[in-house]
């Protein structure tokens, strides 16, 4: 698997798309620091951006890479290599290289700005981990979509749709639901609904960092327990990791049955 991972990884590292992605984050990092002129402010803006951007880039790149590397995949399939090894290698290759672009692209400007010496370093590292986890989740979702769809236009469409769904539509429906049923106790429901969307989950992790004062203003005992103790952080992280593992499991299952 390491071989496949290495080939995919270097294949991607050489492609102009990972440069594009890297340069994009580099530019974003410098722009935010320059415009805000304040480390905490830049990190807060970035936290808001990351939860939306990394899933978008993860899905789009995931689908694109899967379709573009179809020849490579077929070549590998005829070799004495396990199927799961091939797909895991490719998956880790792309998710890894995207995460690396993210970490380097943002890391360089913030290091240059002196994030290491500021009190924001934990927040910054946390932000990078959050972004990397989202990348792994959404690349996996993209792989599942591409495995199910031979037609690349369709696959691409579904990828955009799944991003749009998790990033915007889900929260819209969520909000409408909360407003319509506002007379009922909703705290358990809202926590459960949050757990089912990886973008909401990582947003909750951000909220736990930035908005704990506001979150504790809410009366519900379930909220209080969730946000007021380490449980919130623990549960959200656990669910996020689960969100990583489950799609990978599905990839492994689906790839065994697919014809090439």
């Amino acid at each position: 698997m390491l071989n496949i991972l290495r080939y995919s990884f270097f294949d991607l590292m050489r492609s102009r798309w990972s440069y594009f992605y890297f340069v994009f984050y580099l530019a974003l990092g410098f722009a935010l620091l320059f415009l805000n002129n304040s480390l905490p402010k830049a990190i807060i803006t970035l936290m808001n951006l990351i939860v939306v951007l990394t899933p978008l880039i993860g899905t789009v790149f995931g689908v694109m890479y899967f379709y573009n590397s179809r020849e490579f995949t077929e070549l590998l399939l005829a070799q004495p290599i396990k199927r799961s090894t091939i797909f895991m290698g490719q998956y880790l290759g792309i998710a890894g290289s995207l995460s690396l672009s993210l970490v380097l692209g943002l890391g360089i400007p913030f290091l240059a700005y002196g994030v290491m010496l500021s009190g924001e370093i934990t927040n910054f590292i946390f932000l990078l981990i959050d972004g990397a986890l989202l990348t792994f989740i959404f690349v996996a979702l993209a792989f599942i979509l591409s495995l199910y769809n031979e037609n690349r236009i369709k696959g691409f469409g579904y990828a955009i749709l799944i991003w749009l769904f998790f990033a915007v539509i889900y929260d819209g429906l969520f909000l409408i639901f909360l407003l319509v049923f506002e007379n009922y106790p909703l705290d358990k429901f809202s926590l459960a609904a949050t757990m089912l969307n990886p973008i909401d989950l990582s947003r909750i992790l951000v909220l736990l960092k930035l908005d704990i004062s506001a979150l504790l203003g809410y009366t519900g005992a379930v909220f209080q327990q969730f946000f007021g103790t380490a449980m919130g952080l623990f549960l959200s992280t656990f669910m996020l990791v689960l969100w990583c593992v489950l799609p990978v499991g599905i990839i492994l299952r689906v790839c065994k049955k697919k014809d090439f």
């Binding site: 819209g172 407003l179 009366t219």
Partner: peptide, 20 residues
């Protein structure tokens, strides 16, 4: 305003939808 009316919605703070 939304949060004042339905406090549970605070969980959607900082979401893309709310920003929009």
């Amino acid at each position: 305003y939304v949060v004042n009316r339905t406090p549970e919605t605070v969980i959607l703070l900082r979401s893309f939808f709310v920003d929009i």
